[in-house]
């Protein structure tokens, strides 16, 4: 089981803030591909050509960051603070 959180414009476009998934994909890229495979709007927001950042357990991650049971994954657009 993993928990997936969505922030800012990513959340707004998906219409979902968080959800739990029973299966744990191997890494961030696999999770993203699984979500994009749901079809619109998921493929438009999380498709491989979209600039979306990911964090695993609240630390910036990359496509090949591995996932384990119990992890928290966040997806969000490039940050604009400061």
């Amino acid at each position: 089981m993993i928990r997936v959180l969505f922030f800012a414009s990513v959340r707004d476009r998906l219409g979902v803030a968080d959800e739990s998934l029973t299966e744990t994909p191997a890494n961030v890229a696999a999770l993203r591909a699984n979500l994009a495979a749901r079809g619109a709007p998921w493929d438009e927001v999380l498709g491989a050509d979209q600039r979306v950042l990911a964090a695993v357990n609240q630390t910036m991650a990359t496509d090949d960051s591995p996932l384990s049971d119990g992890d928290e994954v966040g997806f969000f657009p490039p940050v604009t603070g400061g």
Binding site: F7, A8, M60, F76, P77, P78, V79, T80, G81, G82
Partner: peptide, 9 residues
Amino acid sequence: LKTRAPFWK
């Protein structure tokens, strides 16, 4: 901060 901290305007 502007490129690594998760804030959005």
